[in-house]
């Protein structure tokens, strides 16, 4: 068993307007897996499918090698989950919510919960209904981490939080991972947030998983090339041209966004009679945007 989460050809239909189609996703054990995608792309629905909250129409799901939803009870005992929206009971205080939550988890670490509460500056006697969004976000993370989970599932955990709280939350996650080598599945539309911490990345768009690869390959594999004198029709390349467009007012110079680029490949461009003027790295956000653009019908690769 090398995957913590495994989805094979999973499909799910919400309504006429939205469906997840043929999602095959693999989260290696011990990885920090960033799940990227614009709002409404299906990230939360995918999470709810493998958390057993939604039932797939087809395909199979397993977590730690156990079938979802058949073995959900034992699976959930090993998952710390921070959902997209706050889901705690507002009439309870922080201490009461901790006691309530702790009663369901055998591995609950009370000492660590107290330590985290101090680190995250949460007041045990504070009523949840009076807490700010940032404090509620920290509480949700505190609940998830104090379970000592083998898998942390974080659905937009820092969405809407201020930078200070966001840093605290991510620091707490990283500390936990470095201590326990737990697997982390973190969804976000904030690309930069994931760039620094993830070692794998999956990209969702319009209900499809359009890419899944190690972060290093994602960061380094997508480049912006400037090419002079390229022919109209491109031969088969060992890299993928995600998009190409002619630069404004620069004659025959084109900008290509390519995936899977390696330096020796420049000779293949030159054999076409074109000249490679320069190669630039894209940051993760630019790569993400270009990748999504290449999968969308209105702006497909090669479109101007």
């Amino acid at each position: 068993m090398s995957n913590a989460i495994e989805l094979v050809d999973v499909g799910w239909t919400a309504d006429k307007a939205f469906a997840l189609s043929d999602i095959s996703l693999n989260v290696p054990m011990g990885a920090i897996y960033g799940f990227l995608g614009p709002n409404g792309s299906g990230k939360t629905s995918t999470i709810r499918l493998f958390m057993g909250m939604l039932k797939p129409d087809r395909g199979s799901i397993s977590i730690f090698g156990r079938a979802v939803p058949k073995d959900m009870k034992s699976i959930l005992a090993r998952i710390g989950y921070v959902p997209e929206r706050p889901h705690v009971y507002p009439m309870l205080t922080v201490a009461e919510q901790l006691r309530y939550h702790a009663s369901f988890f055998r591995l609950w670490d009370d000492g660590w919960a107290k330590e985290l509460m101090g680190r995250l500056e949460l007041d045990a006697d504070r009523k949840i209904s009076r807490m700010s969004k940032g404090e509620t976000g920290k509480l949700l993370l505190l609940l998830a981490l104090s379970q000592r989970p083998d898998l942390l599932v974080l659905d937009e955990p820092t969405d809407g939080l201020d930078p200070v709280v966001r840093r605290d939350v991510m620091a707490a996650v990283l500390d936990y991972v470095s201590e326990t080598s737990a697997t982390v599945f973190i969804s976000s539309h904030l690309v930069h947030e994931l760039e620094r911490i993830c070692d794998w990345v999956g990209v969702m768009d319009a209900g499809r998983l359009v890419a899944e690869l190690p972060m290093q390959r994602f960061k380094n594999g997508i480049k912006r090339l400037r090419v002079d004198g390229a022919p109209e029709v491109l031969e088969a390349f060992p890299f993928v041209v995600l998009s190409r467009h002619r630069d404004n007012g620069s004659g025959s110079t084109e900008t290509w966004i390519v995936q899977g680029w390696e330096a020796p490949m420049r000779y293949q461009i030159e054999t076409l009679g074109a000249t490679l003027r320069d190669v630039a790295d894209l940051d993760l956000e630019e790569s993400f945007v270009e990748l999504l653009r290449s999968f969308r019908p209105s702006t497909t690769a090669g479109a101007d």
């Binding site: 958390m51 909250m53 959900m72 009870k73 889901h87 369901f104």
Partner: peptide
């Protein structure tokens, strides 16, 4: 009441049938 309001997300994330 509160489970409905919270979309049952919390309840369904607990290790119980």
């Amino acid at each position: 009441n509160w489970d409905h309001r919270l979309g049952h997300v919390y309840a369904l994330s607990l290790p119980l049938t």
